[in-house]
């Protein structure tokens, strides 16, 4: 079992580059521990900024730094970063077009039983609705590293959501195909299948598990790791949908305005097929660890398998 959460992979990637690229800055809102960014703050104090518990300020100041040529990475729990500082993300980052990378840590229901205040089930919808804001939910630590490496190369704003807990590896060291803004095929590329499963973030792993379980029962399924929710890789969505009888989108998000909505929009317009969106409910989720919450709402390999079989029966 992998022990490195995606947030730690971000820190390691930034550490690797910050020695030679002095424009890389990390900002935290009393969140350096939960962001796994303490090593960065210790090693590069001149490139670290502590904001205290003030997420609006975190994002506004990051935008000011960016306008002076810095590459700020602003870390805060996704729940606070995407709603409390939404106005700053809109005006200071997206609208002013500043090179701010917003890193939402402990996203989705990572905080489990801490309750709805700490859940970010709306972040994809919120951030994706901002013109000029990109939204990424990398699946595992290897893809997270590739994503951050790519984002270090550009000068546009972006929102990245990662979870709190380590997730099982999907890729391997040296075997993580990655192209920015292109989804990664995990299974069944170019094959006619019964079901196309499109997932992002922590849901990529159960999507893959479901496809494997379905295959054992003779039901073919393709799997797309759609880490790039915006800009959505429409080409890949249509390729997957075109070769499948049904499409299943899986996300750790509200039923509205997330990956499922976007996939349904594209498939409905260009390649009408039945689309099932598996998500969290439009309600505060049941109390439990994130694993328990996922199990409760069928956001597991088993749950996805069950859904696909029901839809095909």
């Amino acid at each position: 079992m992998n022990k490195i959460p995606n947030r730690q992979a971000i820190c390691q990637t930034l550490l690797k580059h910050a020695a030679t690229d002095k424009s890389i800055f990390a900002l935290c809102s009393d969140s350096r521990g939960s962001a796994s960014m303490s090593p960065f703050f210790q090693r590069f104090p001149g490139q670290s900024v502590e904001m205290g518990i003030a997420e609006q300020n975190l994002v506004g100041i990051a935008a000011g730094l960016a306008s002076c040529g810095k590459k700020p990475y602003a870390f805060s729990p996704a729940c606070f970063l995407t709603t409390r500082s939404y106005e700053q993300a809109k005006i200071d980052c997206a609208y002013s077009d500043t090179n701010v990378k917003l890193i939402g840590i402990s996203g989705g229901v990572s905080y489990g039983a801490l309750g709805m205040s700490h859940h970010s089930a709306q972040d994809i919808a919120a951030m994706a609705a901002l013109p000029n804001m990109r939204v990424y939910l990398p699946s595992d630590r290897f893809q997270t590293e590739k994503l951050i490496e790519a984002l270090l190369q550009d000068e546009k704003p972006a929102y990245v959501r990662v979870g709190r807990n380590p997730v099982e590896d999907i890729y391997r060291e040296g075997a993580c195909p990655f192209q920015l803004d292109k989804a990664t095929w995990l299974r069944g590329k170019g094959e006619a299948v019964r079901a196309a499963i499109i997932a992002c973030g922590e849901m990529a792993r159960p999507a893959l598990e479901a496809a494997e379980a379905l295959a054992e029962e003779g039901i073919s399924a393709s799997v797309l790791d759609m880490y790039c929710v915006k800009p959505l890789d429409r080409e890949a969505v249509l390729e997957a949908a075109g070769l499948a009888d049904i499409v299943v989108a899986v996300e750790e998000h509200s039923p509205f305005g997330g990956l499922g909505s976007m996939v349904a929009q594209v498939v409905g317009e260009y390649c009408p097929k039945r689309v099932k969106c598996l998500s969290l409910p439009d309600a505060p989720v049941v109390t439990g660890t994130s694993a328990e919450v996922f199990a409760h709402y069928g956001l597991t390999g088993e749950g996805i398998t069950r859904t696909v079989k029901e839809l095909l029966s």
């Binding site: 506004g60 730094l65 700020p72 700053q88 809109k90």
Partner: peptide, 17 residues
């Protein structure tokens, strides 16, 4: 330098600068 119009934004941005 920066877009504004939504109040309360200029000072944090200037702190960053």
């Amino acid at each position: 330098e920066m877009n504004s119009g939504s109040l309360g934004h200029g000072l944090p941005v200037c702190v960053g600068m």
